[in-house]
Design a binder for these strands. Structure first.
Lengths: 194, 194
DNA sequence: CACTGGCTATAACGATCGTCATAGTCTAGC
DNA sequence: GCTAGACTATGACGATCGTTATAGCCAGTG
């Protein structure tokens, strides 16, 4: 059992998530993903026999789980801490990339399939959004929020953060994140108190 | 004939905005945009000599102005009415397209340029976001909101709506829009009252 | 009438796409 | 050593991309 420092497969998935978050799914070629991960093109189809759809699906799930893990850990200290961690996580991605990277889940959610079937990657994006919402909503409920208020606010948080990250990229400024952070934090506090 | 039907140029821009909102910028070819508008490929480069970047830029501006016009009109009846119109506008686009269309401004904002220069289309997207925010913030201020609260809330509204539309597409459900609408409406009311 | 300029029609350019096929290399277990 | 299977290397396939070039049509003006 070779025990890989990030195995080639993992490197490809992580790199694909990064590239998709910058250029979008359709604009990122499999050749570039392979090169970015230092892997040969042939390996890509060895690890992901279903091709680009499979790779995109795994990249979405990878980002979703990584973020969910971070969220889960910080939510132990309460919804406000979780919210702050969520915001900090995306702020770091935006700033570190000089406003060039965003959320690969959003990028995949926005591009329609060629045919009319629902691609696996889109379904994976929906799952990721739902997971994030559930984590936030559960924590809010545990801290005194009304059940439906908690669900609504969780949706608002996820949607607002995704939208804000995109706005920061367009404006090449973190001001939108500052605004959204203030408003969401106040709203979470108010919802918990009620 | 004053203007028998939208001119060929306008049809191309409007069609491009629609296609970009469905498939993303990079996945929409100029050939498809021309065909979708019933125009020959040659005409595209006649009307838009700078190529795809120019067409994308005009599509973003077109959507931005169309939406701003709608927003301006409804904001005359106050921030709550404006918010409701904004939400209704995007809900209609999502539902009428059977969850296949979204916001072309967001789609353009998310895709990085090939080189490292800032493409005109991205700058246009930033302008559109800023315009929408200003309309909302001004109206909020006119109705009793604190100036910085108004700016923050305006950013939150635009970001949340953009993100929510994307979530609705992924989930193939309007529930995210319902959640976001409730939360934002309550927040606008509370901000005005304060 | 000829002419001009906006628009169309058609074909081509090199590049790159997703995918597949095939042969070669490496390594673990017998 | 030898073989099986995991991985790499290489190259090709048809298609489509953004863009350009060139020739043709067809109003309106003189």
């Amino acid at each position: 059992m070779t025990k890989p420092s990030p195995s080639a497969r993992e490197r490809i998935v992580a790199g694909a998530a990064d590239m998709i978050s910058r250029r979008g799914l359709n604009a990122t070629s499999i050749r570039e993903m392979a090169k970015h991960a230092g892997a040969p093109l042939g390996s890509t189809y060895h690890y992901f026999p279903e091709g680009k759809q499979q790779l995109a699906t795994e990249a979405v799930r990878f980002t979703g789980e990584w973020t969910a893990r971070c969220l889960r850990k910080e939510l132990a200290a309460g919804p406000v801490a979780g919210l702050r961690a969520f915001l900090t996580l995306w702020r770091k991605i935006v700033v570190d990339s000089d406003f060039r990277a965003g959320c690969p889940v959003l990028a995949v959610a926005i591009e329609e399939p060629a045919g009319d079937e629902t691609p696996a990657a889109l379904a994976a994006a929906a799952d990721v959004f739902t997971t994030w919402e559930s984590l936030l909503a559960d924590s809010l409920r545990e801290h005194g929020a009304e059940p439906d208020q908690a669900a609504q606010l969780a949706t608002l948080i996820v949607a607002a953060v995704e939208g804000t990250v995109a706005m920061c990229r367009a404006k090449r400024s973190t001001q939108p994140l500052d605004h959204t952070a203030e408003q969401l934090q106040a709203l979470v506090l108010a919802t918990m108190k009620a």
